[in-house]
Amino acid sequence: MEIHRFEKVWIAIALLLIVGFIATIAYGALGPGVKMVDASGGTIDPEAVAAGESGTAFDDPGVRQTGPNEYDVYVVARQFQFAPGTSQPIEVPAGSTVTFHITSPDVTHGFNIAGTNVNTMVIPGQVAELTVDFDETASYGIVCHEYCGGGHHTMEGTIEVVPQAEYDGPGGS
């Protein structure tokens, strides 16, 4: 086998690069603790969600307080609306840890808090579960980034991270 010595050098460097990439990603998971969306949200019957009879918090989506500075946000993403998010903003206080639970009663949607790393697919039958720290006061736009039908481009929302002092508790749905 004739392989030029330069090429051997390059193979070694390329492998090093690959290992370096994998190491960076492992660092991101172990150091700053970035977690991937996974199966922890479980499955759900989309038609029950559509009918509002799933027997879960998705029947009355919105923000819930679960502990000091800890909140659960249940979001139903449907053609072409985040509930909550579109008609009224999702409101959480700064300095809180928020777990989003998102599902869809109809087709596949996306949920991206634009300009942040909070980004997930919303697949009927699956519950996307993501925990996020909101440290600072901010106002973000949410976009549905998966084509979901003819009105897809109108599917947007907002999330307001308000100062602790101004937060008057989860407003329900």
């Binding site: 991101g28 603790g33 808090i113 993501l130």
Partner: peptide
């Protein structure tokens, strides 16, 4: 760009 910016999924 990634770790240096806004909220990230941590759980």
């Amino acid at each position: 760009e990634f770790l240096g910016r806004g909220p990230t999924v941590i759980g």
